Amino acid sequence: GKRLNIQLKKGTEGLGFSITSRDVTIGGSAPIYVKNILPRGAAIQDGRLKAGDRLIEVNGVDLVGKSQEEVVSLLRSTKMEGTVSLLVFRQED
């Protein structure tokens, strides 16, 4: 696979993607993946982020050990017109 650095500018329609966690172990944390890209928002305008990408970092914060809720609040904490920096891991087909 490969790592991608993606910067998304948060506009009025938001970042435009949803996340999910897979393989949750009890008391553990699961990897966070991009669930889908919404028809409006920064992600589809940028065009690089894809469903199935694994989020590794948000704005330089390592997501290991973070819950899905914590990751959502990290993403939401970005101000309007601010930039969210994502490091994602993509499995090659």
Rank of each mutant, 00 (worst) to 15 (best):
D62I: 05
K9V: 14
P39C: 11
T20F: 06
V84P: 02
N36W: 02
K9S: 14
L74Q: 06
G65A: 06
S73W: 07
D46A: 02
M80C: 13
I44W: 07
R22G: 07
K50F: 04
I32M: 08
L87Q: 14
Q68F: 07
A43L: 00
E92W: 14
S67H: 07
Q91I: 10
I37D: 03
P39Q: 07
T78Y: 09
L38V: 03
L8C: 04
T20K: 05
Q45K: 13
G27C: 14
L75D: 00
S73R: 12
E69H: 09
Y33M: 12
V88M: 03
L86K: 03
F89H: 14
R48K: 05
D53T: 01
N5F: 14
V24S: 14
F89K: 10
E92V: 13
I44T: 07
V64N: 10
I37F: 02
R48S: 06
K2L: 08
Q7T: 14
M80E: 15
D93T: 08
V58A: 14
V71G: 01
K2W: 05
T78N: 12
I26F: 10
I37A: 01
A43W: 03
G41W: 05
L87W: 13
K2P: 01
I26C: 14
R90D: 03
L74T: 06
G1L: 06
L49V: 00
D62T: 07
T83V: 08
I37Q: 00
L38E: 13
S21N: 15
K35D: 15
T83R: 10
G52Y: 02
I56E: 03
L15D: 00
P39K: 11
I56D: 08
I26M: 13
S29T: 11
V71D: 01
I37H: 00
G47S: 04
S18G: 15
V61R: 08
G52M: 04
G1P: 03
K50Y: 03
R40K: 06
V58N: 04
N59D: 12
G11C: 10
L8K: 01
I19Q: 00
G28R: 06
A42P: 07
S18F: 04
F89A: 13
R48Y: 02
R3G: 08
V88I: 09
R3T: 10
Q68R: 11
K35R: 10
V71F: 04
G65V: 03
V71E: 00
L55R: 02
I26W: 06
L55Y: 01
G14S: 04
T25F: 10
Q91Y: 08
K79G: 13
V61M: 10
T78H: 08
L4F: 15
I32L: 13
Q7E: 14
D93C: 11
V64R: 12
I32V: 10
G82S: 13
R22H: 13
T83Q: 09
E92F: 08
L87D: 15
E92I: 12
M80Q: 14
R90A: 03
Q45W: 08
S77Y: 10
G28L: 09
P39S: 11
D23Q: 12
L55M: 05
L74P: 00
R22Y: 09
F17V: 02
K35G: 15
L87C: 06
G41H: 02
T20S: 09
G82Q: 11
V64W: 05
D93V: 10
E92D: 15
E57M: 11
V64D: 10
R40Q: 11
D53F: 00
S85H: 10
A51M: 15
G82R: 08
T20I: 07
L86M: 05
G52E: 03
K9Q: 15
S18H: 09
L49A: 00
A51P: 08
L87T: 13
S67I: 04
S85V: 07
I19S: 01
N5Q: 15
D46W: 05
R48A: 06
Q7S: 14
L55C: 03
E57L: 06
I37V: 10
K9D: 07
D62V: 10
L75Q: 01
L38C: 06
E92K: 10
S77K: 09
L86E: 01
S21Q: 15
V64Y: 14
L86I: 09
A51E: 05
G82F: 07
G65Q: 05
I37K: 00
A42I: 03
L87N: 14
R22V: 10
T12H: 11
L74W: 06
G41S: 02
T83P: 06
M80W: 05
L8P: 02
G60C: 04
V84F: 04
F17T: 00
D53M: 01
K79S: 13
A30W: 03
A30L: 10
S21D: 14
V84H: 02
D93H: 11
V72M: 11
G28I: 15
V64G: 10
V88G: 01
R90N: 02
R22F: 10
P31S: 13
L86G: 02
I32E: 05
Q45R: 13
I19Y: 00
A43P: 02
E13S: 07
S21R: 12
R3L: 09
D46Y: 02
K50W: 05
L38F: 15
L4W: 04
S85E: 10
G1E: 08
K9F: 11
G1K: 13
A43I: 00
E57W: 04
G41Q: 02
T20Y: 06
L4G: 01
K35W: 05
L87E: 11
S67A: 07
